[in-house]
């Protein structure tokens, strides 16, 4: 690790204004390299950001966004005064935390496992297959899940035949759904997520393993002392970034799997902020309210990431976002 980009001393002294111009010129190539991304972000992300004010306005179309009247925090009232605000926030955040840790953990295990496969042919085969669920849209998965979980579906057929119990009405019982959603989520995303970790494992200099072998390390030590520590920057990055989206749910999954527009019984456990807002605004589609909720989700996400990042920085600077 001592040989990485992380510890090289700065190129020039940090003080003085003459230094500023020198630094600019010396690193001008880097500036140019960063330019495409910066330009596109300005054009497509930063310029439209004037729209953030919609959250605080009542949009009058004939006046345009900037001349429409201000209404302070009134748009936020919708969400915060709602009796369900706490429940959907809890669902969103709770499920996301669950997802973050279980999907990353399982993807990591899978990547480590694939790392042990000797023959490349078999490995490629496995890897391709694990990726298949990614290609199924939530709509399709929703239908297949229904085929399995409905009153006459596979699961109930199995249960009644083996245990002789009454069929379970999954779609009428909220309690089962956190587990169902978790399992489906892992199944669908594990192939995709494991690719990142696998790529990270590939980037590890084999020399380290060599040295470990010489030192007489066990397989377990090899994994815990080399593989994992060396991809820990990636693990850390993925988790820190995931915190930014902890208040945003995957709308497609939460909408199509429990078939939320059909029967409201499952709402207590599967209604998240995004589906709740979508549903509520279906009659009175109010862009100000939608914008306010969005702002809230983004703001909390930002605070969380900065906090987690600061903590990470305290532990190990090179693993942090910045």
């Amino acid at each position: 690790m001592s040989e990485s980009l992380n510890e090289y001393p700065p190129l020039v002294a940090k003080r003085g204004r003459g230094m500023l111009r020198r630094r600019f010129r010396m690193q001008s190539e880097l500036h140019i390299m960063a330019l495409p991304v910066v330009l596109i972000l300005i054009l497509y992300n930063y310029i439209p950001m004037f729209g953030l004010v919609i959250a605080f306005k009542r949009l009058q179309v004939n006046l345009g966004i900037l001349r429409s009247p201000w209404v302070g925090f009134q748009n936020f009232r919708f969400f915060f005064s709602s009796p369900d605000a706490w429940r959907v926030t809890r669902n969103t955040v709770g499920m996301n935390f669950l997802f973050i840790f279980t999907t990353n953990f399982s993807a990591l295990i899978l990547a480590l496992a694939m790392n042990e496969v000797r023959r490349r042919g078999i490995l490629k085969f496995y890897q391709t297959i694990y990726f298949l669920p990614y290609f199924l849209s939530w709509v399709v998965v929703g239908f297949m899940l229904y085929g399995m979980l409905n009153r006459f579906g596979l699961v109930n057929a199995f249960l009644t035949r083996t245990f002789g119990i009454e069929p379970i009405r999954f779609y009428d019982t909220p309690g089962y759904w956190p587990v169902i959603l978790l399992l489906v989520r892992i199944w669908k995303g594990i192939g995709y997520a494991s690719v990142v970790y696998y790529a990270g494992l590939m980037a590890i200099d084999p020399g380290f393993y060599e040295a470990a072998r010489i030192d007489g390390a066990t397989k377990f030590q090899e994994i815990t002392k080399i593989s994992i520590p060396l991809i820990s920057p990636i693990i850390a990055m993925l988790i820190i970034l995931a915190f930014g989206h902890v208040f945003r749910g995957d709308f497609g999954m939460f909408w199509h799997l429990p078939r939320l527009d059909r029967n409201g019984i499952l709402k207590p456990t599967v209604d998240i902020i995004d589906t709740y807002v979508y549903n509520s605004l279906r009659i009175i589609g109010d862009i100000g309210i939608a914008s306010a909720v969005n702002f809230y989700q983004a703001f909390v996400g930002l605070v969380l990431v900065l906090t987690v990042n600061r903590i990470t920085r305290g532990i190990s600077a090179e693993h942090a976002l910045y």
Binding site: F78, S81, N263, G264, S280, R282, I284, I289
Partner: peptide, 20 residues
């Protein structure tokens, strides 16, 4: 305008209970 929030929320409550 004055009850946008309530309209959305009550509709949500309706959807949760009435079909069932």
């Amino acid at each position: 305008a004055n009850v946008t929030a309530e309209i959305g929320q009550t509709r949500s409550v309706h959807d949760e209970f009435v079909p069932g």
